[in-house]
């Protein structure tokens, strides 16, 4: 499948979204990403049982931190899709890029891109 997704989305591969830490997401924002999202497997489908559920809680924590320091919590998000849903992957990348475009560039960044963590 050759699908297009916005080139501004930089992908960081992890073996499971359970490996994604709060600090990884914050570092993306600190280093200038306008937004950061985690693309995990469908809930209930985690190979390691609860990796994606842990990631979801960590994303929620990051949203809270962003809000506390006066940034839009929407700059962080958790998405769930299966590895077979390539079209959905591209769609999410477009959706999130659109959301960030509406929010405008991060006041932190140097006009850098948005990041994604996928598993």
């Amino acid at each position: 499948m050759r699908l297009n997704y916005p080139s501004n989305v930089k992908i960081v591969n992890v073996p499971c979204t359970g490996r994604v830490d709060i600090l990884h997401l914050l570092k993306a924002v600190e280093d200038g990403a306008d937004g950061v999202y985690v693309a995990g497997c469908l809930e209930g489908d985690c190979h390691y049982l609860s990796g994606n559920l842990k990631a979801k809680k960590r994303v929620a924590y990051v949203k809270k931190v962003l809000e506390e320091i006066g940034l839009e919590p929407e700059r962080a998000e958790m998405y769930n899709l299966s590895a077979a849903q390539g079209t959905r992957f591209a769609e999410i990348a477009r959706e999130f890029t659109e959301r960030i475009r509406e929010l405008g560039p991060s006041p932190v960044g140097s006009g850098a891109k948005s990041g994604a963590e996928a598993a």
Partner: peptide, 17 residues
């Protein structure tokens, strides 16, 4: 150590902003 990293990052983001 972990919480130190998280707080440092949050403070740096806030100040960069």
């Amino acid at each position: 150590q972990k919480e130190v990293g998280i707080l440092a990052s949050a403070l740096k983001i806030a100040r960069k902003k």
